[in-house]
Amino acid sequence: MISVKNLTKRYNSSQGDIEAISGINLKVAAGEIFGIIGPSGAGKSTLIRTLNLLEKPTKGEIIIDNTELTSLSAALLRKERQKIAMIFQHFNLLSSRTVRGNVSFPLEIAGIAKKERKQRVKRLIELVGLSDRADHYPAQLSGGQKQRVGIARALANDPQVLLSDEATSSLDPESTKSILKLLSRIRDELNLTIILITHEMEVIKEVCDRVAVIEAGKIIEEGTVLEIFSKPKKPLTKKFIKSVIDFELPPRVAEYLSDSQHKPGILLRVSFLGENTHQPLISYLVKKFDIDANILYGNIDEIQRVPFGTLVIDLEGKKEKLSASIQFLQEQGLQVEVLEGESIT
C-alpha cells in the first residue's frame, strides 16, 4: 500500500545543513496500523509530513497505492491528497464552522454535491459518535471530541490511508484510549491503512501491528509489535518498552532480597509470551522437581491479544533440581534470566 524508498529531508540553516530524516525505507501493507515511535527531534514528525508532501523531501520516493507522489504536478497531488487523510495533535479544526461544517469541509473541496454531502456528513458524525454535538463549535468540545471531529473529517472522502501526527498526544489517558479504539475500529470496518507517529509506547502497544523506532532521522529497529516488545535490541527501544512494562524489581522486592534473613536460593526472571500463560507451569515445576517456588513479582500484559509478561520467582531446593527446573522452563520457550544465586546453568 505504502512504500517509501530512501527518503531524505535536509534543511538549510545558518549552522549548515541539517538532515531531519535520512535514507528512510518503509513498506506498509494495506489494512495495517503501522506505528513510528521516537523521542522528540528524532524526525518522526518530518517523516509523516513528508508522506503527503506537506514537507517536500530532498530525495527519495513515496509510493502510495501505486502512485509515486514526489513526481506529481500540483493539481494531481491535490487529487491524490484527498485519498490520504491526516489527523493532527492540535486537531486543526476550523473555529468558524460547527462540527457539521468541519466534516463537510473536505467534501466541499472534493466538489461533492450538496445533497450527497449532507448525507455523508450525517453518517460520518454518527460513525464517530458525535450526533448530539453536530451543531456545536469546536471551542465547545473537549479534546477527545475535537479529535473525533478530526477523524470524521479525515474519513470524509473515503481515504485509503490515514496519517496520524501525534493525534493522542494532547489528550488525557481516557480520551487517548477511546480515540485509539476508534482508530482500530475504523481500520477494521473500512480496511484503512494507518500510519501513526507517537512518542508514547502505550499507543504503539494499544493499536499498532508493526512498529519502527526512529532515532536521529534513521529507523533503528523495525518489526511486529510483539517482536519488538519481546526482543528489543536497541537501548532506545528498551527504554521505550520500559515506559509501559516495568522490568525493574520494585523496591519492596529488592529490599526483601538484600535482607540477610532471606534463605539462599536462586532468583529467576522468567519472561513469557503467548500460549504458555495458559499452562500451570509453576505448579508443575513445584510438583515435578520437588522445589519451593515463591513468586515475588509479576507483570502480565497483553499485546494484540497475546499475553506477555514477566515473573520474578525465588526457587529453593536441591541444586541439581534447580538447574533442571531452569532447563525445563527454557524448553517451554520461556526466557530465563538468573538474577541471583550460585552459578547453576
Binding site: 491535490r78 491528497r81 484527498q82 493532527f88 492540535h90 486543526n92 476550523l94 473555529s95 464552522r97 473541496i109
Partner: peptide, 24 residues
C-alpha cells in the same frame, strides 16, 4: 496548522482563501 490541514486535504489556494482564511 488549520491552513496546513486544508492543504493536506487537497484544497487549492483559492479554496483555502475563501473557505479557510477569510471565514477564520
Amino acid at each position: 496548522g488549520v491552513i496546513e490541514s486544508a492543504e493536506a486535504m487537497g484544497a487549492t489556494p483559492w479554496q483555502i482563501v475563501y473557505k479557510v482564511l477569510l471565514p477564520e
